[in-house]
């Protein structure tokens, strides 16, 4: 009996001392986003892919996905400064990157160093997952064929890198952006452009908003002992690279 009591006491104590705040916010895009390009034409090169989308909506690229209320999708938000010297062991649950309908799902996602990444092929056709690290990145280049419905054995990345590009050697329109950070405080915006980062220890941090076309934009933020802090960010038209205008 005594042990049980001791365990409860310790865990209760733990709950009280750990204070954590949450960072919430909305990322929006001001102005008219550059038009998306259609992929269905390119998909005709592989009959399996074309068949998967035969009666579905036309498939478009997902460069500047802006919702009705101006929310910008696929923006990766994470803390870049303020966590120096702190170690975070990787979360138990794994991240799933699926290849479904000849498209990487999700298109942009975050993962912590050492966290399991499971790559799945849900199409009955051949995909070739090709990971291309940056010029001076320490992550290894990797090339795995996935010819039928299967999962690759779970793998982990050792070194942070934003972004680590995934492409498919068989379908040239397939891309995914895996953002590796060495702490759990990150999120990717959904269609409404909103994101939420929970259990952030109080303190001053720099939050950074990364978009695959419109680069990285740091913002200072102070997280209170508990409760939420609201941080919004707006990408403007002049941030769009010239070749896309």
């Amino acid at each position: 009996m005594r042990h049980l009591f001791a365990i409860c006491a310790v865990s209760a104590l733990m709950a009280i001392t750990v204070q954590a705040g949450t960072i919430k916010g909305k990322v929006s895009f001001e102005g008219t986003p550059p038009p998306e390009k259609s992929i269905t034409e390119a998909m005709k090169s592989d009959p399996n892919c074309a068949a998967l989308h035969a009666n579905g909506p036309e498939v478009m690229t997902e460069h500047y996905v802006v919702g009705e209320d101006g929310g910008l999708k696929w923006v990766f938000v994470r803390i870049t400064e303020g966590l120096e010297g702190q170690k975070f062991d990787p979360p138990k649950e794994s991240v799933l990157l699926d290849q479904e309908g000849c498209l990487y799902k999700p298109h942009v996602f975050g993962i912590q160093t050492g966290q399991d990444l499971i790559i799945r092929n849900s199409d009955a056709t051949l995909h070739n997952v090709h990971i291309i690290p940056g010029r001076d990145s320490k992550n290894p280049e990797m090339n795995k064929g996935m010819p039928f419905k299967m999962d690759l054995p779970p793998m982990q990345f050792e070194y942070p890198e934003v972004p680590l590009r995934f492409k498919c050697d068989v379908h040239r329109w397939m891309f995914a952006y895996c953002n590796i950070v060495d702490h759990p405080f990150f999120d990717t915006t959904d269609e409404t452009g909103s994101f939420e980062i929970k259990d952030v220890p109080p303190g001053d941090y720099t939050l950074s908003f990364w978009h695959k076309k419109m680069q990285d934009h740091p913002v200072k933020v102070t997280v209170p002992a508990e409760g939420e802090v609201e941080v919004n960010f707006t990408f403007t038209e002049d941030m769009v690279p010239s070749r896309d205008r």
Binding site: P147, F148, D151
Partner: peptide, 23 residues
């Protein structure tokens, strides 16, 4: 190709096959 191995055979492969399938 693509059909999962029976469990006792997949066990021999260890981490090289996930749920009986290897690439």
């Amino acid at each position: 190709p693509g059909r999962p191995l029976p469990e006792w055979a997949a066990a021999l492969l260890g981490p090289n096959s996930t749920s009986g399938i290897f690439g």
